[in-house]
Amino acid sequence: MNFWCDIGVNLFSDQFAADREQMLARAHAAGVNHLVVIGSDIAESEQNQQFCQQQANKSNINIVTTAGVHPHYASQVNDSWLAQLKQLLQASSVVAVGECGLDFNRDFSPRPQQQLVFAEQLQLAIQHNKAVYLHERDAFDTQIAMLKQHSIQRGVAHCFTGNTQQLRAYLDLGLYIGITGWVCDDKRGAELQQAIRYIPNDRILLETDAPFLLPKNIQPKPKSRRNEPAYINYVAEKVALLKQCTVSDIAAASLENSKRLFNFQSQQHHD
């Protein structure tokens, strides 16, 4: 059996409200023994951190979290957000700063405010020696310029959907690449499928971005369109096919990479 780390779960999405514990049990049964849950604003980051604390000795899965402010919410930060984020980054269960970055596709927050909030988080990542957990949509050139300006060398391009040129730019900075079920979509994911072969095995991370991005290669198709960590192997199957290696190769590499990036304490697998 392969063991997995899913580095992208939106744990407190309303879609998991009715069966969060059962979803985690299914993940464990599928071999997922590490989860990174995503904080998209201060409130969610705090909620995640409290959950990680409560689960520390109860769960069969090692659950850790990111803490940060997504660009969509950059205009909603209050005066104390930075102080609150610094406080969160003291917690051992908080392994990365983010989800942070730039989104010029939807522009839910004004671009100057997005850049301001992103820059503050990049500084914090450096100061606290944490990985950055990056979001980017239609803002690649500005984002890569800011990463270079802040000398960012440790982090992950979360839910990477870009092309080979963008992939190489992230790799050149020393970053890891997070691959989701987007790669299983032969129409939308065509550029990403082309780029996959250029990701070295020691830089690839796997994520479901659950409950979003249900892999299209699941057979038979689930009744619900909701994605969950138990489906991580379908992402790996598509990656292995494109990279012409085995699913076990991808499982082992991505698990090792996640431990290295997020400084997981090595955890014995619980039955």
Rank of each mutant, 00 (worst) to 15 (best):
E46V: 05
S93E: 14
A30F: 03
H72K: 10
V32E: 01
Q54Y: 01
Q90W: 06
L88V: 08
V69K: 00
Q87T: 15
V95G: 12
A29Q: 10
L35M: 15
K58R: 15
Q47A: 10
N60E: 02
L82V: 14
K86N: 13
Q90G: 04
A25Y: 01
N60G: 08
S59G: 06
H72M: 07
S45Y: 04
V77P: 07
S93W: 04
A30C: 04
K86G: 05
S80V: 13
Q55N: 02
D103T: 09
I38A: 12
M23N: 09
V64W: 04
L24R: 00
A96V: 12
A91L: 12
L88Q: 13
V32K: 01
L85I: 04
R26M: 09
V95Q: 11
N33R: 09
S80E: 13
G39K: 00
Q55E: 13
D103A: 11
K86A: 07
W81E: 08
H28I: 06
L35C: 13
V97L: 10
S45H: 07
E46K: 13
A96P: 13
V37W: 02
Q84W: 07
N62K: 07
L102H: 08
D103L: 09
N33M: 03
V94C: 07
A83T: 13
S80L: 12
A83I: 11
A74I: 05
R26W: 10
S40W: 03
Q53T: 11
I42R: 04
A29P: 00
V77N: 05
S45C: 12
Y73H: 15
S59Y: 06
L82N: 11
Q76A: 12
Q90A: 14
L24H: 00
G68R: 02
G101N: 10
L35S: 14
Q87N: 15
D79C: 04
L89H: 05
I38N: 14
L88E: 10
Q55R: 07
I61L: 09
Q49G: 03
I42D: 07
W81K: 06
Q55G: 02
G98N: 10
K86M: 05
H28F: 04
T65S: 15
S92R: 12
W81S: 12
V37A: 04
H28R: 06
I42L: 15
A67Y: 04
Q84T: 05
V37K: 02
W81T: 07
N57P: 01
N62Y: 14
L35H: 13
V95M: 13
N48T: 02
G101P: 09
G39M: 00
V69S: 00
A43V: 15
I61Y: 09
S75Q: 10
V36P: 01
W81C: 08
T66A: 05
S75W: 02
C52T: 01
L88C: 09
Q76D: 14
I38K: 04
L102W: 08
D103I: 11
L85C: 06
V69Q: 00
Q47M: 09
A30E: 03
S45T: 08
N33I: 05
H70V: 09
S45D: 06
